[in-house]
Amino acid sequence: MCGRFSLTATPEEVRELFGLLELEDFPARYNIAPTQPILVVIDGERAAPGSNLPERRALLVRWGLTPGWVKDPKDFPLLINARAETAIGKASFRAAMRHRRILVPASGFYEWHRPPKESGEKSQAYWIRPKKGGIVAFAGLMETWSSADGSEVDTGAILTVGANAAIARIHDRMPVVIAPEDFSRWLDCRTQEPRDIADLLRPADPDFFEAIPVSDRVNAVRNVGPELQEPVGEAQAAAAPAPRKAAGGGGSRGESGDDQMSLF
């Protein structure tokens, strides 16, 4: 599962990696939470100059996919993740898997190791980032929800897969990572059906990410600074006082709070 992530790269770095012609300036974000706007990359409707490939565009969507057939999002679960193994067969994700695949730029993600209660151990937060640094592209899905008054909201979810050997000690799921050489295949919903890109829905190599223990300050959406990614000893992190949590708690699927941005 991916319940929090970060994007601290510069707009120039994002534009260069994803081949974007235009990208508005944006601030570094260290604690991106469900229901907040997230930056995503999609294929455009026209060919890029000097290429027969569609021009890629960036836009903001609400993190928490809402299918178009939903009448009231308040009565529908907050779908921040989609299981890659079953997404094509689920009513909530089937159309997006076929027609609206996206890329989600990130600098890394946060995950919590939650031992069984009987173990007596405390949960530990980890900042998980590429060992070599840089930007990672998560596989995502997008849907546009329309309200009764005709207004529209673009929404999205991140695809997850069973964790690789390195991440499995922390959590059994992890985001699907799309390599730069596979961006075009993943985004091409015109000629690439879900069965054609199924090979991309796999865990990252075990040595791709590094997991750094951090304090549980990331649990609170009001904490948004770079100190969230400062390494701490695991024993120190477990002993630190827990911050007041927003409704839903850190990393939960139904998370929402007064200090989160919302597109609804």
Rank of each mutant, 00 (worst) to 15 (best):
P54I: 09
W69P: 12
E55K: 07
I38W: 06
A33G: 07
L65F: 11
A47K: 15
V70W: 12
A47S: 14
V61G: 04
L65P: 11
I42C: 14
A48V: 04
P34V: 10
P49S: 07
V61L: 10
L39Y: 01
P67A: 12
L59K: 13
K71A: 15
L60K: 10
L39R: 10
P37V: 05
R56G: 07
R62T: 12
L59P: 07
V41T: 03
L60Y: 13
D72W: 05
A47C: 12
G44L: 08
P49V: 04
P54N: 09
L59G: 11
A47D: 15
W63M: 10
E55Q: 15
V40F: 02
V41C: 05
A33I: 04
L53K: 14
S51K: 08
P67Y: 13
G64K: 03
S51V: 02
R62V: 04
P37G: 07
P49A: 03
V70F: 12
T66I: 15
D72M: 05
S51N: 06
A58Y: 00
K71Y: 10
S51H: 03
D72V: 04
P34Q: 11
L53A: 15
T66D: 05
W63E: 02
V70Y: 14
L59M: 14
N52M: 02
G44H: 04
P34F: 11
